[in-house]
């Protein structure tokens, strides 16, 4: 049962990932990408890691995809198609992709994976305690660094959105 579900999810992921790259309509690509991300959330659910699955759904499916759709809505008309690349470029991309895939697969198949024992648990309380833990194996430093980074991004966004003030006659920038 689990195995069948995993293969179904894997097929969905690979199929829609390919479709997302190959589609010539921008919004369809975004929706295929959404399906890939939802399937990843499904894999997390299968591993009983509910918290990560819900994060995947909120941040990626609900947040980032909505933002991408929003920007597509602003800049893209429904009749537009993405242009097809030149043949030489297509060939180069195919070569680079297959090289990357080969390297990736060879690393996975040659590495000797060990079966890990039961982890520290996936409850939200355990995750929260780990995030604020400054002892051994705690994640307080990355947590704080990320919060500073987000704050900087927020300040930057406000500065950009604010723009410059217009003067009285509203034509020239002060």
């Amino acid at each position: 049962m689990e195995r069948i579900l995993f293969y179904i999810l894997a097929l969905i992921m690979i199929g829609f990932a390919l479709a997302s790259v190959m589609s010539r309509r921008m919004l369809r690509s975004v929706i295929y990408l959404l399906f890939v991300l939802c399937a990843v959330a499904g894999v997390y659910f299968m591993m009983d890691y509910n918290f990560l699955a819900a994060i995947q759904l909120t941040i990626y499916a609900g947040g980032i995809i909505v933002l991408i759709i929003f920007s597509v809505l602003l800049v893209h008309h429904i009749e537009m198609r993405m242009e097809i690349a030149r043949p030489t470029r297509q060939l180069l991309t195919a070569l680079a992709c297959s090289l990357g895939l080969a390297a990736f697969l060879s690393v996975i198949y040659t590495y000797d994976f060990q079966v890990s024992g039961p982890g520290p648990g996936t409850e939200v309380s355990v995750i929260g305690a780990k995030l604020l833990d400054y002892g051994e194996g705690g994640f307080i430093l990355p947590f704080e660094v990320i919060s500073v980074l987000l704050l900087a991004a927020m300040v930057g966004a406000i500065v950009i959105a604010k723009g410059t003030k217009l003067s009285e006659n509203k034509n020239e920038v002060k």
Binding site: L34, A54, L57, T58, A61, G62, G63, I65, V66
Partner: peptide, 8 residues
């Protein structure tokens, strides 16, 4: 998480 998908 689910309610954020409906808007799509």
């Amino acid at each position: 998480a689910i309610s954020s998908i409906g808007v799509i």
